[in-house]
Simulated scan of single mutants.
Amino acid sequence: MGETDVFDRLGLTEYERTALTELLSLGRTTAPNLAEAAGIPKARVYGVLDSLCDRGFVKEIPGRPKHYQPHPPTEILDRAEENRRQEYESFVADLEDQRAAFLEEYGPRYERAGEDITAAEELFYVVDVGDPSERETRRIYREADERVRVLTKAFEYFETVEPAVADAVDRGIDLRALLRHPDALAAENRERQRAVVDRIRGSYPEFGIRFTRGALPWRGTIADPSDGYDDGEAILLVQEDEIPNHMRQAAITENGAFVAGLNRYFELVWTHESERGAGGSGE
């Protein structure tokens, strides 16, 4: 952390910061001298110095005229830490004073609002397809503890999630992806898929890839499914070719049973309806 960062954390105004910086170079001086040296208006300099004294960064020395002297840098930092601690303790005390009244007022409101939530809303929440869904997908990769499973047509969005994939590989996450067989793709998507597969096989050989000739009624990413239905997360969207991407939404679920069901579908297709030898330029 540089000196600029330290001054930022002290919470000083621009004039206070300028004054303290100049005082640390000048040492003991008068307000008029400081105003002249630091370029602070004389009408403002006394208020600035009073504030620095109140914070414990500068001490006032009585006399005619009064002088001002900065405390040593170590004492300034110690005092700043103590000031922040006192502010926090005051904040906590004020919050506790208001806790009972706040909970009494807003607790029932929250409970009443929750009564209208449907089972479907508890099972899923949705995000727009595009940047929001890609951001959530990256998060799922980064938060995965053991394994990630992907169902995708051509993995055309791979570039947007690649940093998260690389992180998952480095952490030893078990990664597998099921893609549509190139023979089932249009020429443009086939070329996109080929480039992605070459990239993955060349840079992330740990990432298992297989291809299915069957249709994929839904596509998405699954993380950490649990046979006990008590863990896991998934993001998915269903096949809706007639709806443009900018109008589509992806569903995210943390329901362990639902995630386990999605993973069951993945494993069945992976084991019984897929093959490895397709997609790359070397195949």
Rank of each mutant, 00 (worst) to 15 (best):
G2M: 09
F7I: 04
R17I: 00
A37H: 08
A38P: 02
A38W: 00
P41N: 09
R44F: 04
Y46G: 09
V48N: 03
S51H: 01
C53W: 00
I61P: 01
P70G: 11
P73M: 05
T74E: 14
E75L: 12
I76W: 00
S90M: 09
L95Y: 10
Q98N: 10
E105P: 05
G114Y: 04
I117Q: 12
A119P: 00
A120D: 14
Y125A: 06
Y125M: 10
V129F: 02
V129K: 15
D131W: 13
R135T: 14
R139T: 13
I140V: 13
E143A: 15
R149T: 12
T160Y: 03
V161M: 08
V161S: 15
E162F: 06
V169H: 03
I173Q: 04
R180D: 08
D183H: 10
N189L: 08
R190F: 12
R192C: 10
R192M: 10
S203L: 01
I209M: 02
I209Y: 00
L216R: 06
W218N: 15
D224G: 13
D224M: 08
G228C: 14
Y229R: 09
D231Y: 05
G232F: 05
L236P: 04
H246M: 15
M247P: 06
R248T: 09
Q249N: 13
V269T: 14
E275A: 05
